[in-house]
Design a protein around this nucleic acid. Structure first.
Lengths: 192, 192
DNA sequence: CTCTAATGTCTAGCGGTGCTAGAATTCCGG
DNA sequence: CCGGAATTCTAGCACCGCTAGACATTAGAG
């Protein structure tokens, strides 16, 4: 049995290597540079090996997205827990969200811009994604205001953050006033 | 001279045909289906003809985006002018924006998701894009609130709309409560 | 009206993509 | 040590964006 266990371990290890390499390559040179050939070369295996782990490139993107969602959820919770008072927590949360998107553009794209073949807003949504949304909900639910459904409020706040993140990174919004936009967002949306 | 004028006219006509065909193809089968080969076949010319009008595929996307921006600006102004009172205008504007994005997903992608090689937020931004932003600004400037820069407010409102549009269309947000989200957005952000 | 030169268009092909069939190799259990 | 199963690789498919150079068409001079 031990032999098969070792093989299974090595296989899992290699799968992690593929995802980590894809992420690194995407973060350094953009997702366009992540081709199956380059990826195979980096992990020092031939192309078909990739397809013994994933159905195709999209599933690799999906795997990077799930990794990212886990990290993002942790980063959001850490940031939110640092603030005292609901409003400070919300501000910290918003900054953390935009910071994560700015620091990990490729991962953010994998999560929300590219097709990673992931389900959203269903019960078969992968746990890390649900959990990242929960991290938002935990803090934002406090400031939804009376009679406003916390989930709906979180969706709206999230959409605003997502818009700011993507438009800023794509050069659609000048980066100078990011902080002012965050403050305005929190001031208007959060009811304390 | 007349001969050259005719040629020039025909050339301009063909360029319009290329853009219209690209748009139609993208709207019906997605941008992935818009390949230079297919596009060339549809317009009944060979591939290199495309490159005598545009530097490459990205410029074709850019041309579709500019078309879309002009249309969107008109749609936004029409919608906003229908409402009476600043708040009604803003609500109508928001609905029109999301409606345009939902009805013209490929054009919306060309404008904001894909790389069409267009400049944003500079003085060398193409006029249609500036004008679309102006259409937002005209209505939203009325409800920015005291001491809030109208441009900054418009950027934030726009980002929220953009987030709602993209997340909804990508299946990240359930489409059922779109209207409720719009109402919440206007209620919180607009100061009348 | 003809011949030339320029303009316009096409054919063919380059290096790249994601993905896969089938050959070749490696490894494990007996 | 060997046979068979599991694994990995080589080679190739159809397609992509893009372009050099051959070819056809046309305009204007004589």
């Amino acid at each position: 049995m031990s032999v098969q266990e070792r093989k299974q371990r090595e296989r899992a290890e290699r799968e992690r290597l593929i995802v980590a390499t894809a992420r690194e390559l995407a973060e350094h040179q953009g997702w366009d540079a992540v081709t199956t050939r380059r990826l195979a070369e980096r992990i020092e295996y031939s192309q078909p090996v990739l397809y013994s782990h994933f159905r195709g490139k999209r599933e690799i993107i999906g795997a990077v997205a799930l990794d990212g969602a886990t990290e993002m959820a942790a980063a959001l919770r850490t940031a939110a827990s640092a603030g005292d008072g609901p409003r400070a927590r919300v501000t910290a949360l918003a900054r953390a969200y935009l910071g994560f998107a700015a620091r990990n553009p490729a991962v953010y794209d994998a999560m929300f811009e590219l097709d990673g073949g992931l389900a959203f807003a269903h019960e078969d949504t992968p746990q890390p994604l649900k959990d990242a949304f929960s991290a938002l909900l935990e803090t934002l639910g406090e400031v939804a205001g009376d009679g406003v459904h916390p989930g709906l409020f979180t969706e709206l706040f999230w959409a605003a953050l997502h818009g700011l993140a993507t438009l800023t990174r794509a050069g659609r919004l000048p980066p100078e006033h990011t902080e002012a936009r965050v403050e305005l967002l929190v001031n208007r949306l959060a009811i304390t």
